[in-house]
Structure formats: structure tokens, C-alpha cells
Design a protein around this nucleic acid. Sequence first.
DNA 1: TGGCAGGGTCATA
DNA 2: TATGACCCTGCC
Length: 277
Amino acid sequence: MLKLKGGGIDLERSFSCGQAFRWQKVKAEENCWRGVVKDRCATIRKEGEILYINRPEEEEEDWTHYLSLDLNYGELEGLLGQNPKTQPCVETSAGIRLLRQDPFETTISFIVSANNNVKRIAGILERLSEHYGDKREDEDGYLYAAFPSPEQLAAASAENLKDLGAGYRAAYIQGAAEMVANGFDLETLRGVPAGEASKALQSLPGVGPKVASCIMLFALDFTEECPLDVWMKRVLRDLYAPLGEKEAVAEMARQFGPWTGAAQQYLFHYARTKSGK
DNA sequence: TGGCAGGGTCATA
DNA sequence: TATGACCCTGCC
């Protein structure tokens, strides 16, 4: 059993704010979530400020990194609190942590996210894993399906993917998986200029500017990325009017610097909470 | 029950 | 650069 200091993380907000799709609340227990991260299944329970994770102690660094427990989010919340316009989201979104996710899983997840809703996205990814991923058992005997490897998904037929509910995204999933399986190296994009990484990602089928931005923020450590979806566009109109979208993003980057992406997630969650979603 | 929105992308003009 | 089409489920 792995034991970590939680550092103010809010599991519910972090897992259900739309950055990851394979975490589910364990209903029988208080503040307890189970999820599959690439090929590992974990159950995380929070008691006070301590996280109990049913993983071996050697994985301490991995989970600290995944949950961003090594960063001081007090700094972000301080910045958000300084501006009366962004201040309200501190209350609704405190405890959200950007999860540092696997690049391939994130790529497929956000290809699936296009013109789609969170519930259906989660269902498609679950069926994708059940169908093509390795079946495994965690330390407690819980059976789960790992996220498929690029090779496993590349071998899938678009028709079969369609049957899993992916719709017109089926061909994108298969095509992107094939490119990665054939040597398109997502990892090497870390640290290259943002414009270059975005352009490279957009050479994958089903990946446009928004999905590229999500992959960069959620999986490749581009912490200044600010993905603009329909919700964030509304937020920017509300908060930064009369600035246009580009100017508003520039203003966010100026205010938040390396915390821009995390601020985006706080504001995104705020907007959705406010609308009752 | 019908009608539309849902964390966009792609093809076409 | 600007429009529509696109699979299909969930929700009002």
C-alpha cells in the first residue's frame, strides 16, 4: 500500500473535470476512486490529507508525478484570487490537479472527445479498452482492461471501432494509432517549441488545434497551453470582454505564466459547475 | 417525444 | 477564411 501526502488535492474534481475519462467513484466508500492509467489500475482513497493507493511502494514517484503532488497549487490559487473576475473559481475548483497522462492514451481520448459529450467519451474509451486492451488483475483481484497499445489499436478495423460507438471518429482512431505504431514518436515532442509540437500533432488524423492543445497540456508538460473549447470561449467572453479570443488568451498567459493551463482547468470547471453540468 | 447540444475536425469553395 | 457534414448518445 502506497501512502502519499495529498497536498490539497480534490479527487472528485480532478478525476471528473474532463481531463481523464477512466476514473470512477467507488460507491461503497467515502472519497475513494478507482481508475486505469495506461496499463495500471489503482484505487485511491483520501483520508484527511493522506492518499492511500493500492500500488507497490516503488511506484511512489510515478503516482506523485501523475497526480502533480510535487507542485504548489497554492501559488495558482493565489493568482486566481488576486483578480476579482477569476476569484470565484477558486471556491468551485480548489483542489483540481492537472494529471500528467500518457501521450498515446491522451491522444486517442481527445480524438474521441471531438464534438462529443463526456459520458459518451468515457463509454467509448471503456469499450475500446475492453475490446483491444490487455486484461489484467490488480493486487486486490479486481479485473480490468489496460488501455490498448498503439499496435493493438492500429490492428483494429475502422468498422469494428464504429461498432463500439466511435462513429465517424473510428477511422481517425485507427489512423492515428497506426502512425504512432509506425514510429510517430509523441515523447520527442516534449520541449520543442509549442507551435512546432502543435503542428506535428495536427498531422495525426482527427487532431486539430484544440485536440493538439489538450494533448500538449495533459500529456506533454506544455503548462502554458490553454485549450479553447466551447466552455472556455464562453468564459473568456465573460471575463475578458471586450478582448477577442487571441487577446484574452495572451492576457491569461501574462497573468498566469506557467500556471495558464491549470488556470484554464479551474475556469473550465467553474463554467460547467455554474451551468449545472 | 422531438430536437438539439456535445471539451472539433475535415473537406470544400 | 468560412460553412456544413459528420456518428450517436444524453438530456431537456
